[in-house]
């Protein structure tokens, strides 16, 4: 990857990270969207879209409301695409093994990545207190500056999160690169099927939160009908 690629990674990571909490919430932060965008910019759209599908549903129902902070699936998706871009050239014959390994790595790192989000919110407390002190002195003009400084803090947290995911993933994959044949031997299942386990687990995670009446019956009926239609078509 060249300097222009890294700058694009930083730009997408920042914008998507801000969209997650600090700004607008227009869904650029969803893994499907940011992974596809990152993949398009890095010229690996198809595997990036696959990673987006794998990660999209896993934490869909961890709602970003109140004080709840969900695992950082935005930076996880962006980091996963970057890792695929970095390692795909070394492992052309192990594409699916790489995709599944990267998917598993970023699922773990996403849990750690949310610590940066929590850190940003704690830093923002200082901005709030600073603004409050100034207002008590009658200086209301600092409110705006302190408020928009929060954007900068969230942007730094996003970059730190994606940087951590990419650096840690790079380190572990570099070690694992030597054992890829053994890993492929241990996990000889069709990689496409393994990749489908991610969204299926995401479906389970979503169903676990939706506690409505007849949830299981609706799910099973819809599954059966859709499968039958797909078979007929």
């Amino acid at each position: 990857m060249n300097l222009a690629n890294w700058l694009m990674v930083a730009a997408v990571s920042t914008v998507a990270g801000l969209d997650r909490t600090a700004m607008a919430s227009v869904m650029l932060a969803r893994p499907l969207v940011c992974a596809a965008l990152m993949g398009y910019l890095l010229d690996i759209f198809v595997p990036a879209l696959q990673l987006g599908i794998m990660l999209e549903l896993l934490w869909l129902m961890r709602l970003p409301v109140g004080a709840a902070v969900a695992p950082d699936d935005t930076q996880a998706a962006i980091g996963a695409v970057v890792l695929i871009k970095l390692f795909a050239v070394h492992l052309p014959e192990h594409h699916w093994e790489l995709v599944v390994s990267v998917g598993l790595l970023v699922v773990v790192f996403a849990e750690i990545g949310k610590c940066f989000d929590v850190w940003a919110r704690h830093i923002n407390e200082r901005l709030f207190l600073h603004a409050q002190r100034n207002l008590e002195r009658g200086c209301w003009r600092s409110l705006v500056a302190n408020h928009y400084c929060g954007l900068l803090v969230f942007a730094v947290a996003s970059l730190a999160s994606s940087g951590f995911i990419i650096a840690s993933g790079n380190f572990i994959l570099n070690i694992g690169l030597g054992y890829i044949d053994e890993i492929a031997f241990l996990f000889p299942v069709d990689g496409r099927m393994l990749a489908a386990i991610f969204p299926i687990t995401g479906i389970a995670a979503t169903l676990a939160v939706i506690r409505g009446r007849h949830t299981v019956a609706l799910f099973v009926a819809s599954f059966a009908v859709t499968y039958a239609i797909l078979e007929i078509v």
Binding site: R121, Y148, G150, L151
Partner: peptide
């Protein structure tokens, strides 16, 4: 931008 300076306080 209402959440730009979101904090726990």
């Amino acid at each position: 931008f209402v959440q730009s300076s979101w904090n726990y306080r």
